[in-house]
Simulated assay, not measured.
Amino acid sequence: MASSLVLDIGGDIGALVIHTGPDLDSAEIELSPVGFDHQRFHNQVHARHLPEGVRHNAVFPRVQAGEYTVWRDHSTAHGTVLVEGGRVAEYTW
């Protein structure tokens, strides 16, 4: 069974796919604009069944262009990612 998603990108709106391992299945991953740690939003990691196998990722289908902090937990950043309008950014956990 293949998974499909609808992304709402264009103009200054992009999307972000965060690739994880199966250990994060069902976990929530938070993002915030760099410098605005309190403006967090999240999405959940799901197993996606693709022709080449099962992949685990969190998909943010509509993200304002900019640089974002990816949070490991409430107080620890995992890294940063740049989201560009009209494009799909990818981040590996």
Rank of each mutant, 00 (worst) to 15 (best):
4 S>A: 11
51 P>L: 13
61 P>D: 03
65 A>L: 11
40 R>F: 10
65 A>S: 09
84 E>C: 07
34 V>K: 10
43 N>W: 02
93 W>D: 00
77 A>P: 04
33 P>Q: 08
32 S>Q: 06
55 R>G: 01
84 E>H: 10
82 L>R: 06
86 G>L: 11
22 P>E: 14
4 S>P: 00
72 R>N: 10
52 E>V: 08
53 G>Q: 00
45 V>P: 01
65 A>H: 02
14 G>M: 09
41 F>T: 03
25 D>T: 06
63 V>N: 05
69 T>I: 15
55 R>P: 02
23 D>L: 08
7 L>K: 04
64 Q>H: 11
1 M>A: 14
49 H>P: 12
75 S>V: 15
86 G>F: 07
92 T>K: 07
73 D>T: 08
47 A>C: 05
61 P>F: 04
81 V>D: 06
62 R>W: 01
36 F>C: 13
67 E>R: 09
52 E>A: 14
78 H>V: 02
2 A>C: 04
77 A>N: 06
41 F>L: 12
54 V>K: 13
24 L>T: 05
20 T>Y: 13
85 G>M: 03
54 V>T: 15
6 V>D: 03
40 R>D: 01
42 H>Y: 09
9 I>M: 05
91 Y>G: 01
22 P>F: 13
26 S>D: 15
89 A>I: 01
39 Q>I: 10
92 T>R: 09
12 D>V: 04
74 H>L: 15
90 E>A: 07
27 A>W: 05
80 T>S: 12
83 V>F: 01
6 V>F: 05
81 V>W: 12
21 G>C: 07
62 R>I: 01
90 E>F: 09
62 R>V: 01
17 V>F: 11
1 M>N: 15
80 T>L: 02
52 E>K: 12
37 D>G: 14
36 F>R: 15
47 A>K: 13
65 A>N: 00
9 I>E: 01
78 H>M: 12
25 D>N: 07
42 H>P: 06
79 G>D: 13
68 Y>Q: 00
78 H>A: 14
47 A>G: 04
46 H>M: 11
35 G>S: 03
7 L>G: 05
11 G>M: 11
87 R>N: 07
77 A>S: 15
50 L>W: 05
73 D>I: 08
5 L>V: 10
7 L>P: 04
68 Y>W: 06
28 E>W: 10
67 E>L: 02
10 G>I: 02
47 A>E: 09
49 H>T: 12
36 F>K: 15
87 R>Y: 07
21 G>L: 12
32 S>K: 11
56 H>L: 10
16 L>H: 02
54 V>P: 02
57 N>F: 14
74 H>G: 14
70 V>D: 04
69 T>S: 10
43 N>S: 15
85 G>E: 10
88 V>Q: 10
43 N>M: 10
19 H>R: 08
75 S>Y: 02
46 H>V: 13
68 Y>F: 11
20 T>W: 11
73 D>R: 13
79 G>K: 08
16 L>S: 03
3 S>E: 08
47 A>R: 13
25 D>H: 08
51 P>R: 14
85 G>S: 09
10 G>F: 05
48 R>S: 04
19 H>N: 12
93 W>P: 00
33 P>S: 07
84 E>R: 15
13 I>Q: 14
21 G>M: 06
78 H>P: 03
79 G>L: 11
